[in-house]
Nucleic acid binder design. Structure first.
Lengths: 344, 344
DNA sequence: TATCAAAATAAAAACGTTTAACTTCTTTGT
DNA sequence: ACAAAGAAGTTAAACGTTTTTATTTTGATA
């Protein structure tokens, strides 16, 4: 027995396939009574819309492309693990819609650029979600030029306005620094993501601004940029703790680097809360299990990810991008006093 | 200007669309010279196959459904993070093929069952990759009954043979236990995944077998089953360390639970290597950053994930499932001596 | 050179849907 | 009472491909 089509329903009801099609999509051209008959018949025969027909006819793909930048296979590091939660959040937001998440794993920025170019020009999806935005992001421009719906996870700085979701990095860093200064810290390290990422710049600027306000000097030796792996956090601590005037606080951009920082503490014999402290930005709620638990700004990743999903839906419906911008302020979770007794 | 189709090429070359179609798929029915002409023309006009037409005509979807079981949004726990790497591995394995990974996030087993039922009956994908297998898995049976290509990440115990990829849990646990026994441990705890998962049973059986061989008694109080979150690892340590005769070694099923176990150590004032030790199964290579680093069986997750990708491709090509089964033995990484001085 | 089989190409139908254009029927306004 | 307008439905074409069937071309043979 074949899968029923609108033709099946047409025969079943004696109506034409055009009417069936219209009835099923609630066109005002068909009478409510007729629609009821059609719907009943569809129900009876177990009809389900065949997307392939729709896609061919309308050119819509009903796919949302999620561009996932993950390091290559050789690169065995704890990086980008929050992507799992990000994807599931997006997927759930699309659940009630006919759209599916189609995954495009890429190794680096260039690949993501090429992939996006292809998706846009060959219309392999109806919308794109992309993360790891740069200050001036060519991918954003490509999609804007083609008038292609997209949402970024992360802001840009020099691009025209577009739909985005991001944590409020600016506020987060300003308050982090201010709080540490209040607690007597004068040498605060910033473990920052890759320098070309937009939020690295935002964080750095906020950091410098906060230092200014506190009347503290900016020391480039206390700022590092790289991929946010544990290895990076570890190396940073190993290096900076050897400075003549080492930091008493480390602000880590995520939990992976914070974990690595702990590893560096262990290696150097540093004790958290005595020699220095670690703060972090948390989106997996894992810092509470560190020993000791650390103070973090916590933004449960499902929030931005579900927002990404609903934004791309609304963007594909034609809503203007200006209405689809969210900066979310993470919640401060103070798990540690974070005071450090000044040496001597 | 419209996107070129085979019709464009037909006009361009003066051939019929049937010939174009055949030429482009290397049918022996078309002369090499003709094919050359067609290919050249296709190149010239920048032709790309339109999948929608193909899909409608052939019924193939060129989608591989990846069923991702992730806890609901409220459930803010570090769980299932390795899924990100899993998905990217699969996605890379499919890169050269026309197939794409389509993501289906589900909250629990029942949802995954329903989702798979739907994918199979409505043919929403050409193949399925599913994880979290149970000893007797109804999803496997559904797919087998429908003769639907699939690969599981994880074995089953009571199902008919099918394609799978898994770590060799049996060997891993046997050797883990034997190694700990060699180092003087007589009370070894097993932090195991949910009891209905196939690998929980495999691990438990191996654990009992290894204890038997070592002449040690089996104590049910030393075995716990639950979702592998840090919270679970932590709770397990908090509880077990209060036993009259507490364990001196904890074998954790993944890194999340191992991290939680450390948190439990910290809470109880236990020192790793003095009071007890933690071993784990590692697929993200993160245990090296614990303080102190712990001994693990390491299986870089990209290995099984790329295997999953290539297996599903071969399965969709019609290879028999018996040829597509892999049990991978993780590599022992001894980061700690793991001897514990007996109390008193 | 005529014949025939084989090889190469063309024609046409089909996959399931949407939609523009058309027909029929009913209602409304003068 | 009748034309015009509106409502509800139908017809037919179209989206881009594959594949079955039909037709033409080619080359070998008698």
């Amino acid at each position: 027995m074949q899968r029923p089509t609108i033709k099946t329903i047409a025969q079943e009801t004696g109506l034409s396939i055009a009417t069936i099609s219209k009835a099923l999509k609630n066109s005002p051209q068909v009478r409510p009574e007729t629609r009821a008959i059609v719907v009943a018949a569809a129900e009876r025969v177990g009809y389900e819309l065949n997307m392939h027909g729709v896609q061919l006819r309308t050119g819509k793909t009903y796919q949302v492309a999620a561009i996932m930048t993950a390091p290559g296979p050789k690169q065995q590091e704890w990086e980008g693990v929050e992507y799992a939660q990000l994807l599931s959040g997006i997927s759930w937001a699309l659940e009630e819609s006919p759209y599916r998440v189609s995954l495009y794993a890429v190794r680096n920025f260039e690949e993501s650029l090429a992939t996006i170019r292809q998706i846009v020009s060959l219309k392999k999806a109806d919308g794109i979600i992309v993360s790891g935005t740069r200050a001036d992001d060519p991918r954003v421009r490509i999609m804007q030029d083609a008038d292609f719906p997209f949402v970024t996870y992360g802001t840009t700085i020099h691009n025209d306005p577009h739909a985005y979701v991001d944590a409020d990095n600016e506020q987060m860093i300003r308050r982090s620094v201010a709080r540490l200064v209040e607690r007597g810290h004068r040498r605060i390290a910033l473990i920052n993501p890759m320098a070309d990422l937009s939020y690295a710049i935002t964080r750095l600027d906020a950091y410098r601004g906060a230092l200014d306000i506190a009347g503290l000097p900016f020391d480039p030796a206390l700022v590092v940029h790289d991929r946010l792996t544990p290895a990076f956090g570890r190396e940073s601590v190993l290096t900076m703790s050897r400075l003549p005037d080492p930091p008493t606080a480390y602000i880590c951009a995520n939990e992976a680097s914070a974990l690595g920082a702990f590893s560096g503490f262990h290696e150097r014999g540093l004790v958290h809360g005595r020699d220095a402290v670690i703060n972090a930005t948390d989106d997996l709620n894992v810092s509470q299990y560190f020993a000791p638990p650390i103070t973090t700004y916590f933004l449960p990743i499902n929030e931005p990810s579900e927002l990404l999903g609903s934004y791309i839906l609304r963007r594909m419906e034609g809503e203007p991008p200006e209405a689809l911008q969210a900066l979310i302020m993470p919640k401060l979770i103070e798990r540690s006093d974070d005071r450090v007794v000044p040496k001597r």
